[in-house]
Design a protein around this nucleic acid. Sequence first.
DNA 1: CGGTGTTCTTTAGGGCGTAAAGTGCGGGCG
DNA 2: CGCCCGCACTTTACGCCCTAAAGAACACCG
Lengths: 261, 261
Amino acid sequence: MVVYAGQGDARRSMSLLWRGAADEAKAGVKGGLSLDAIVDAAIGVADEHGMAALSMRAVGERLGRTAMALYTYVPNKAELIDLMYDKVLGELPGDYPLDGGWRPALTTWARDTRAFYLWHPWVLQVSQARPALGPNEFRMLETLLRILRETGLDVQVLRGVVGAVVQFVRGSADVIADVRRAARDTGVGDEEWWFARSPVLEEVAPDFAARFPLATWLGGMEAPAEDDCTPYLEREAEWNFTVGLDVLLDGIEATIARSVG
Amino acid sequence: MVVYAGQGDARRSMSLLWRGAADEAKAGVKGGLSLDAIVDAAIGVADEHGMAALSMRAVGERLGRTAMALYTYVPNKAELIDLMYDKVLGELPGDYPLDGGWRPALTTWARDTRAFYLWHPWVLQVSQARPALGPNEFRMLETLLRILRETGLDVQVLRGVVGAVVQFVRGSADVIADVRRAARDTGVGDEEWWFARSPVLEEVAPDFAARFPLATWLGGMEAPAEDDCTPYLEREAEWNFTVGLDVLLDGIEATIARSVG
DNA sequence: CGGTGTTCTTTAGGGCGTAAAGTGCGGGCG
DNA sequence: CGCCCGCACTTTACGCCCTAAAGAACACCG
């Protein structure tokens, strides 16, 4: 489930996104509802039950109204998602100390951002193709650019680096979010799931090890389980994130070195 | 729209995925349909109209049947998607010459894989959390591992590198696929879309350049338009891919150098 | 006090996946 | 040969979804 934004009246969407705190004063006639309340309720639904459970009915119900009641304040569901998206992006930290140079700052930024995505996993399901162009989206970009500017890289190259970093963080979070979603939506844990399939795989593909020797090799050498409370896949993802981030940052350093030398 | 797999009877799913060419001989009583025909039709629908348009009704219609006719061959929609996924993965090349070492091979692999994703963009919408465990999925992994083994990296580190590479390629393709999807589904081209929003943004956020100086700076310095036939965003994405891939590969080289030295 | 505008509900229509029950045919067995 | 079982397929139906359109209830202004 991916949703695009910015279809309706451009002016209407944008003013909803950039509206100051002033506009919300005029409580409606019957008073109960407000745009903020709706967006908050929607965020609550998405946080608790996932994007798939975000329906106009569900949001309305959480506010003691019907689905149609929301349409007075919000043109349609896509627009509501844009508002949720931009509002929740406001939770991201906006400043990172650059005393130690770009590398530690970028590392912290990456960890923070990944943690944020895992806190609101539904954000990963909002399409990036047609960004909502809300204030917090730009704030997030600005924060990252303040760090990456320190690399002194050329603008063209910097654009590529920004893309690579953002993609890496988003992708890393997506893997974990996906696993958790699957576990919740299906009610089947990872280990359970694997233990049900692994024997069947051997049975149905007896020549597996011969056909896929390297995959077998990689699958066999599993990371040692130090901390047994976090599930296996998440530990693995954590490790992949750490290694991948280091590789990426090394790459950036190498790029800087080359552009200078 | 993301779909998980592997819920139903594990044995049934797996045997559908790993079934040899033998099983398909026995044409049914009324004969018309077959599992292969259904999977092909489904792939056709997804290729032509996107994952969102993939409904049991649509697949049935393409075969001149009703939606329910499919349920004789396929347990449910999720399972059908698994079969589509694994079948289409069969189109990926399986061998890359390693004469020049891992780097050129990996570069080609990355480009090929990204091209594949763009050829069947709906593949990007199949959840990775609960892999279908089909043969072609393993074949793809095996191909990548044959290349990356040449780096000589430790298994633990290699796992992280595999993750980073796969994520990067997938993410890069996803950005473009997303843009194209949005353009098709909404019927609004990128430039059209931007030209409708850009003036409104200035109007609704007059202090934009002051609040987000770096974003303004990055947005202003646009890549020179050499080739006018490919749309702007795709050219940009192409550039990001090239730069990002180089950065990533530099990072891998740095990691190798450190692990040796 | 009556009109007017806003909020919210009701109803309805077209989509989805799929459970359950009904139809009609080919092939195996008596 | 004839009957009937089982399979392929269709019909119907249920419960979700988004949202257009129209109706009801209320506050406020003139």
